[in-house]
Amino acid sequence: HAATELTPEQAAALKPYDRIVITGRFNAIGDAVSAVSRRADEEGAASFYVVDTSEFGNSGNWRVVADVYKA
């Protein structure tokens, strides 16, 4: 099962156990969220919340930071 994305309210009520950072070329924010979901799932997380997204220069590469939560 894939890790689910939390709302800001849900994330605020929970304590993350880790923070992950992924970088890559994403065509849309949805693609980045899917990549975070896969990584969170690999780490055994039940859910995640994207904290920050930023573009690296003009290369089209993105850096996505997310907190991950157990259950």
Rank of each mutant, 00 (worst) to 15 (best):
A13C: 14
R39D: 01
A11T: 04
A28L: 08
I22N: 00
F56M: 13
A71I: 11
A12C: 11
R19V: 04
Y49I: 08
V33M: 13
A35I: 07
G24P: 00
V50R: 02
T23W: 11
E42A: 13
K70C: 12
A45S: 03
G44F: 04
D41A: 15
V21S: 05
T4I: 14
V51W: 04
F48N: 00
V68C: 05
A13S: 13
E5Q: 13
R25A: 09
A71T: 12
N61M: 15
G44K: 05
T7Q: 05
G57Q: 07
A2E: 09
S54C: 15
D31N: 05
A28Q: 11
S54N: 09
G60P: 05
R25D: 05
V36C: 07
A11V: 04
D18Q: 12
A66L: 06
T53E: 05
S47N: 07
A45K: 01
V36A: 07
P16Y: 04
V33N: 04
P16Q: 03
T4F: 14
V21T: 09
D31I: 10
A66Q: 01
T7S: 10
S59M: 10
N61H: 13
G60L: 06
E42R: 10
I29K: 11
R19H: 02
S37Y: 04
Y69C: 03
E55V: 12
A45D: 01
K15F: 09
S54D: 07
S59W: 06
I20L: 07
S54Y: 15
Y49K: 03
G30H: 13
A32I: 14
V64I: 14
V64G: 00
V21P: 00
D52K: 09
E43W: 14
G60A: 06
S54T: 14
D67S: 04
A11G: 02
R63T: 12
E55C: 10
L6Q: 02
A66E: 01
A46S: 12
A13Q: 13
R38M: 09
V64A: 01
W62G: 01
D18C: 15
G30K: 14
G44I: 04
V21F: 07
A71D: 14
L6G: 04
S34W: 09
V36Q: 02
V51D: 00
Y17M: 04
A46G: 11
L14G: 06
P8H: 13
Q10S: 05
G60H: 06
V68F: 15
Y69R: 00
V64M: 03
A46Y: 12
N61V: 15
S34D: 13
V51I: 12
A3F: 05
F26S: 01
Y17S: 04
D41I: 15
D18N: 13
H1G: 13
P16T: 03
G24Q: 02
A28E: 10
A11P: 02
D41H: 15
E42M: 11
R63Q: 09
V33A: 05
E5C: 13
D18I: 12
K70A: 10
G60V: 05
G30Q: 14
H1C: 14
G30M: 11
A71N: 11
V68L: 15
V50C: 05
V65R: 03
S59T: 13
A28T: 15
A2K: 14
T53Q: 08
A11N: 02
A11E: 01
E55Q: 13
D67G: 01
Y17F: 13
A32L: 12
P8Q: 13
E42V: 07
S37R: 15
I29P: 10
V36E: 02
T23Y: 14
K15G: 03
T53I: 15
V51Y: 04
A40F: 02
E43M: 15
R19M: 04
A45G: 05
G24I: 10
V68S: 00
E5K: 08
V50I: 15
A35W: 06
A46R: 08
